[in-house]
Design a protein around this nucleic acid. Structure first.
Length: 624
RNA sequence: GGGGACGUAGCUCAGUUGGUUAGAGCGCUGCCCUGUCACGGCAGAGGUCGCGGGUUCGAGCCCCGUCGUCCCCGCCA
C-alpha cells in the first residue's frame, strides 16, 4: 500500500469537535475532513470502523464498501497509530448505535475518502488503552509515544492552562515578566551548581541558576516594582519523585511588601491556577502556622494537613506514672492517631509493634499501645485521659470523635536519653512526625484521606512562617543561613542585638507555602540595607573581604537606594503534579530524567569529543 | 554515600518444595465477518527468564557479583 500526500486537503474539524448538531447543520453533499492517528480499527469485512484520535478526542469513521470501495480498501490497510485524513459526511448514529461513553458518540463520519499519510510500527506499549505502563524505562526511552497517551496529553493541557492562568493573574496585578540569564555565576552554597565551561576564558565556568535570586532583587533596585518569571532552574542534587535537576519555578518579587502582601498574591494566583484546573479554592486566606508550631504539632516543617496533628500528652502523666512506665520525667510524650484504620488482628498488631520498636532502635524512644493500656485496670484512667486528648484533636481535625477504630500511638522517651539526640528539643517531635507519616502511608488504603474527591477539600494549603534565621552546621561547626543570606531577620531581632548574642533564637522573615505535605514554595522579605546585609554576612562567618569578592556587585547595588522588597518562588511542576493527582514530576515534565539524572531518550549526559574538550581547555581525570 | 522493591513474550503479569518442552490476558500477523465501539470467529508467530559466575544430576526459582528502573534516607541556602 503506497502512502498518500496531503495535497491541498485541509482539516475542517478536530477529532473531539463533532456533535449531532453538526450533522443537522450540514446539508447534503457537505463534508468534513478529520486528520489524526488511528486509535483502533474494527474490521467487519465489508464494513470497517476506524477511531481517529487527536489531542481533542476521538471520532468514529465508518468505511462502507458500498459507499466507497477505494476508501474501504485503504481502511483495510490502516493499522493503529497510522496517520490518516478521512473525508466524509457527518451522520447521526441510528437508534441504539450511539456510544454514550464518548463525547462524539452520537455521530460518526461516513467516509468517502481516506488518505494514508504515514504508517507506524507497532508501538512498544499501547497508546489507545489509557492504562498505566509500569515500565518507566521504556516509557522514557519512547517518551514521544508516552506523551501521545491521553493521560499525559491531559496533564500537559492542564500544565498549559495553569501556567497561563498564573501569567495572566500576575500580569493583571502589575507584575512585569522579565527574563534573567541562564549563564551566570556560581555561588557555592546551597545546592550544587551545574557548571558550563567558558571557551573564551580557559578554566573559568558559568553556572546555571539554582534560582534567579540576586537578579530579581537587582530588578527591584532598578525600580521595576513587581517582577515575575516562569523560570527554569537547575540543581545538581540527587533526585526524588518530586525533585528533578531541571525544573520550573514561578518566581516573583515586589517592592514594599509585608509578608501578608506576598501571601495574598500567591493565594490569588493559586486560586486562578486551580480554577483553570477545575477546582474552586475557598476565598479566605490560607491557614498560617509558625515553624515552631509546625515542629511541635506535626514534627516537620511541611505538615500534611490532611492528617490529624500530634498531641502533647505530657500533662496527663503524673511523675508516679512516668516512673512506673519508665518515661523520662522531663521529656514530652507525644500521641497521634491515624483515623479509620479499623480493628487490627493480634498478628497485625504484633507486627506493628515490632515495626515501630525496630524503627526506634537505640533512640531511647518506646511507645504505649492505648488499646492494651485499657486491658489493665490500673491504667484505665490514663487510657481514658489519653483518649480524651486525642478526641479533642480529632474534633479540631475533622469534627469526629476519636474511636477505637483509629490507630492511636503514644511515644514515650525512656529516662535519661536526651544525650542520645544531642539535647535537640526538635529531635523527638521530628521522629514522631516521621512515624506519623510512615503509618499514614502504610494505612492509606484504610483511612482514604489521600484519595482524591476532585474538590477543593483535596488540597490543604498552609503557610509556615517565622523560620529560624540560622542553622547550626555540626560538621563545619558554624551557623549557616537556614534560607539564604539575603533573608531579613525580624526587625526586633536586629535592634536587640540578638544576631550576635543568640543566633539560634533569631527568626527570619521567611515563609513556605505547603500543600498536602509538599513544599510548594519558599520566600522571604529581603535585606534592603547594606549595613544589615554586611552584618549578616559577618554573622555567617564571612569576612568583609570574602563577602566583597563573592557578592561585591550586590553589596554595591544595595547602596544606591534599595527599596524594601521581598518575594517567593513556587515549583510550577509540583503544583501541576498535585493538581493532576500524579505522584511523580515525570508525569508533568515533558522530557524528564531518571533517578540517576539520565535522559534515556536522547541519552544524556555523554562524553564529548577530544576537539570539543580541547576548545574548552578541559581534561578528564579519573577520580579514585 | 546508605537502605528497600522490582527485572520472565511487544505490554500487563502468573510461574508451587529446584524437576521433562516456561504460561495467561492484551497486542501483533493471516484468513472470515455490514453496526462495532475493549467487536467477534479461526489459525499462527513471538522467550538470551536483565547480564556474569557459582551450588546442583538438574536453576526462571538457591547463593555471589554486576547492570538498569523505581521509592526512601543523606543531600536539596
Amino acid at each position: 500500500m503506497t502512502l498518500d500526500f496531503l495535497g491541498t486537503l485541509e482539516r475542517t474539524h478536530m477529532c473531539g469537535d463533532l456533535r449531532s448538531s453538526d450533522a443537522k447543520d450540514l446539508g447534503s453533499g457537505e463534508t468534513v475532513t478529520l486528520m489524526g492517528w488511528v486509535n483502533r480499527r474494527r474490521d467487519h469485512g465489508n464494513l470497517i470502523f476506524l477511531d481517529l484520535r487527536d489531542r481533542t478526542g476521538i471520532t468514529q469513521v465508518v468505511f462502507d464498501k458500498e459507499v466507497s470501495p477505494e476508501a474501504h480498501a485503504r481502511a483495510e490497510a490502516a493499522r493503529p497509530e497510522y496517520v490518516v485524513a478521512a473525508t466524509g459526511r457527518v451522520r447521526v448514529r441510528g437508534e441504539g448505535l450511539a456510544n454514550p461513553n464518548m463525547p462524539t458518540g452520537e455521530v460518526e463520519v461516513v467516509a468517502q475518502q481516506l488518505l494514508l499519510l504515514n504508517e507506524a510500527k507497532t508501538p512498544p506499549f499501547p497508546i489507545a488503552d489509557d492504562v498505566a505502563i509500569t515500565n518507566e524505562e521504556i516509557r522514557l526511552k519512547y517518551r514521544y509515544l508516552d506523551l501521545r497517551r491521553p493521560e499525559l496529553q491531559r496533564n500537559f493541557e492542564l500544565r498549559h492552562k495553569v501556567t497561563r492562568a498564573i501569567r495572566d493573574f500576575l500580569s493583571d496585578n502589575h507584575f512585569l515578566e522579565i527574563e534573567t540569564p541562564l549563564l551566570t555565576r556560581s555561588t557555592p552554597e546551597g545546592a550544587r551548581d551545574y557548571l558550563v565551561p567558558s571557551r573564551v576564558h580557559p578554566g573559568h565556568f558559568y553556572a546555571l541558576p539554582q534560582s534567579p535570586q540576586i537578579f530579581k532583587q537587582l530588578l527591584m533596585i532598578s525600580g521595576f516594582d513587581r517582577y515575575f518569571q516562569i523560570a527554569r532552574c537547575f540543581r545538581d542534587e540527587d533526585l526524588r519523585a518530586d525533585r528533578q535537576p531541571d525544573f520550573t519555578q514561578i518566581d516573583l518579587e515586589t517592592t514594599f511588601p509585608k509578608q501578608e502582601t506576598i501571601f495574598r498574591i500567591v493565594e490569588g494566583f493559586l486560586r486562578a491556577a486551580f480554577h483553570a484546573g477545575g477546582i474552586e479554592l475557598p476565598a479566605h486566606p490560607f491557614v498560617q502556622m509558625t515553624y515552631d508550631d509546625a515542629i511541635r504539632k506535626y514534627g516537620i516543617d511541611k505538615p500534611d494537613m490532611r492528617l490529624p496533628a500530634m498531641v502533647d500528652l505530657g500533662a496527663t502523666l503524673t511523675p508516679e506514672l512516668r516512673e512506673t512506665l519508665k518515661i523520662d520525667p522531663a521529656l514530652p510524650v507525644y500521641g497521634f492517631t491515624i483515623p479509620r484504620v479499623g480493628e487490627l488482628s493480634g498478628t497485625q498488631r504484633k507486627a506493628l509493634v515490632g515495626e515501630i520498636r525496630g524503627s526506634f532502635g537505640d533512640t531511647g524512644l518506646d511507645f504505649l499501645d492505648v488499646a492494651r493500656l485499657r486491658t489493665n485496670a490500673a491504667f484505665v484512667p490514663l487510657a481514658e485521659a489519653i483518649a480524651a486528648k486525642l478526641t479533642a484533636e480529632q474534633l479540631v481535625f475533622n469534627g469526629e470523635n476519636f474511636t477505637t477504630d483509629d490507630l492511636a500511638i503514644v511515644i514515650t522517651p525512656k529516662p535519661g536519653t536526651p544525650a542520645l539526640w544531642n539535647y535537640d528539643p526538635h529531635w523527638i517531635p521530628k521522629r514522631v512526625g516521621q512515624l506519623r507519616l510512615d503509618l499514614a502511608k502504610k494505612y492509606a488504603d484504610k483511612h482514604k484521606l489521600f484519595e482524591p474527591t476532585k474538590t477543593a477539600a483535596d488540597f490543604r494549603f498552609l503557610w509556615v512562617t517565622d523560620f529560624p534565621m540560622y542553622e547550626w552546621n555540626e560538621e563545619a561547626k558554624r551557623w549557616d543561613a537556614a534560607h539564604h543570606p539575603f533573608t531579613s531577620p525580624h526587625e526586633d531581632d536586629i535592634t536587640t542585638g540578638r544576631l550576635t548574642s543568640d543566633k539560634g533564637a533569631v527568626r527570619a522573615l521567611a515563609y513556605d507555602i505547603v500543600l498536602n505535605g509538599t513544599e510548594l514554595g519558599s520566600g522571604s522579605i529581603r535585606i534592603h540595607r547594606q549595613d544589615v546585609q554586611a552584618e549578616i554576612f559577618r554573622s555567617l562567618g564571612m569576612s568583609d573581604a570574602e563577602a566583597k569578592e563573592r557578592f561585591g556587585f550586590f553589596l554595591d547595588a544595595l547602596e544606591y537606594g534599595t527599596p524594601p522588597h521581598g518575594g517567593i518562588a513556587l515549583g510550577l511542576d509540583r503544583i501541576v503534579m498535585i493538581l493532576a493527582g500524579a505522584t511523580s514530576l515525570r508525569e508533568v515534565i515533558a522530557f524528564p530524567k531518571t533517578a540517576k539524572a539520565i535522559d534515556l531518550m536522547v541519552d544524556a549526559p555523554t562524553p564529548v569529543g577530544e576537539q570539543q574538550m580541547r576548545e574548552l581547555s578541559l581534561k578528564t581525570v579519573t577520580r579514585s
